[in-house]
Amino acid sequence: ELKKVVALYDYMPMNANDLQLRKGDEYFILEESNLPWWRARDKNGQEGYIPSNYVTEAE
Rank of each mutant, 00 (worst) to 15 (best):
L2W: 07
D18M: 10
Y27V: 11
E32H: 06
A7R: 00
M14A: 15
G48T: 00
Y27S: 01
S33Y: 08
W37N: 15
R39K: 09
R41K: 10
L30Q: 05
E1G: 07
S52I: 09
F28L: 13
E26R: 08
F28D: 11
Q20W: 06
T56P: 01
S52Q: 10
R41E: 03
T56M: 14
N44W: 09
A40H: 02
Y9S: 15
E31T: 10
I29T: 04
Q46S: 08
V55C: 07
Y11G: 01
E31Y: 11
L2N: 14
M14H: 15
A40M: 03
N53V: 13
K4M: 05
E1M: 11
R39L: 09
N53K: 11
E31C: 10
E59S: 15
L19T: 01
Y11W: 14
A7H: 01
R39V: 08
F28N: 08
E26G: 04
E47V: 09
T56F: 05
A58G: 12
E57Y: 11
G45T: 02
D18H: 15
Y11K: 14
I29E: 02
V5I: 04
N17T: 13
Y54I: 04
P36W: 05
L8M: 12
E32A: 14
P51K: 06
K23S: 07
N15Q: 12
R22S: 13
E26Q: 08
K3S: 05
R22V: 15
E57Q: 11
A40P: 00
T56N: 07
K3V: 06
D42M: 02
S52D: 03
Y11P: 01
G48D: 01
D25L: 09
A58Q: 08
F28E: 13
D25T: 08
D42H: 03
Y27H: 01
R22T: 10
Y9N: 15
R39N: 07
Q20M: 08
V5F: 09
L8N: 06
Q46A: 14
N15E: 12
Q46R: 12
R39G: 02
N53W: 05
N53I: 03
K23N: 05
A16I: 04
L2I: 07
N15D: 11
K4P: 05
E26T: 14
E32M: 07
L21T: 02
D25C: 15
E59F: 08
N34H: 08
K3P: 03
W37T: 15
G48M: 00
K43N: 12
N34R: 13
G24V: 00
G48I: 00
D42Y: 00
K3E: 03
A7D: 00
R41T: 07
E26C: 07
D42K: 02
G24Y: 04
G48C: 01
E59H: 09
F28K: 05
N17R: 13
Y27L: 09
K23C: 10
Q46P: 02
V55A: 03
W37K: 14
R41L: 08
G48L: 00
Y49E: 07
V6D: 02
D10C: 01
Y27W: 00
N15K: 12
L35A: 07
V5S: 02
